[in-house]
Design a protein around this nucleic acid. Structure first.
Lengths: 157, 157
DNA sequence: GCTGAAAAGCTCTGCTA
DNA sequence: TAGCAGAGCTTTTCAGC
């Protein structure tokens, strides 16, 4: 986790990798104008310094019949640290939840992004996992009609 | 893009890959209890059938001083298909926008997830990219105080 | 800090069962 | 559809610059 001063080539490497996570070192080297050896050394250094958090495979949700994305805003009853921690711990265990953030600027305390097969399964998620929680004071659901953009890339330039 | 009937091993492969996108075929094979050759053949079949959408590298936003995540709800003036299309086309070009969805169930038409360095840069994003758009009738920002969960994995089990 | 070459390791294809 | 074996690549290390 040493500090590293990134140059143009490092940014080029990261930009390439953000979009093509399984590019071979050889191809990557060619794209950024380096020979393979320094390229792999740089990638390794970027990993060791913590710039690269991990690699992931993106699946096609439609092929798994996961057709319903819902953004849920949740208001809690109390705001003690115990209540918040207990709620967050529960959320971490729910596979349907892709994102959960503590937010400010609206009436809600938390916003969740949830992925389920259909409305029936969303109902089950709400009933079995959220409404059973006595600390939840209010839930508001916004259903996604169309996914316009969805990117794991962050703006590093 | 043929249909494929996935068995337990295919699901195990995908689950492994969702979390460790750059696992070598050898390690993957070992984890799912197969020898390398059938494992690589299965991965290839899953790619060809479209189950795997791609591979990505996840970067550590904090190391790039990207410290502010904002969920923005946007209401449009008109709802003609031209207006929607023009708005969506703009959004696709903005690197700061990680997600954009057309939603129902709230007053807003779109929800965006935006990643910027700080409030100053968020102000610039709003002024230069959103408020200049004459079709936008209203904007509401919710700032992320704490990222509780963030996962690219979808619930395939 | 890069290049180039060599060794080690990995992936992939065809074959056998 | 799995496992095995060999050919072909890829990665990584080490001199040399």
């Amino acid at each position: 986790m040493n500090e590293l001063t990134l140059d143009k080539i490092d940014f080029a490497i990261l930009t390439e990798l953000q979009h093509h996570g399984r590019l071979s070192n050889q191809e990557l080297a060619q794209k950024v104008g380096l020979s393979p050896s320094p390229c792999s050394r740089r990638v390794k250094a970027l990993e060791d310094a913590g710039y690269i958090a991990g690699y992931s495979t993106l699946l096609n949700a439609e092929h798994f019949n996961l057709a319903l994305t819902v953004y849920i805003q949740i208001r809690l009853e109390k705001h003690t640290s115990e209540t918040l921690e207990a709620f967050e711990k529960d959320i971490l265990n729910y596979q349907e939840v892709q994102e959960c953030s503590l937010i400010t600027g609206s009436e809600a305390d938390y916003q969740l992004k949830v992925l389920v097969k259909d409305m029936q399964n969303y109902k089950l998620f709400l009933l079995d996992k959220l409404t059973v929680n006595p600390n939840i004071a209010g839930i508001h659901s916004s259903f996604v009609l169309k996914n316009v953009k969805s990117s794991t890339a962050i703006p590093i330039n």
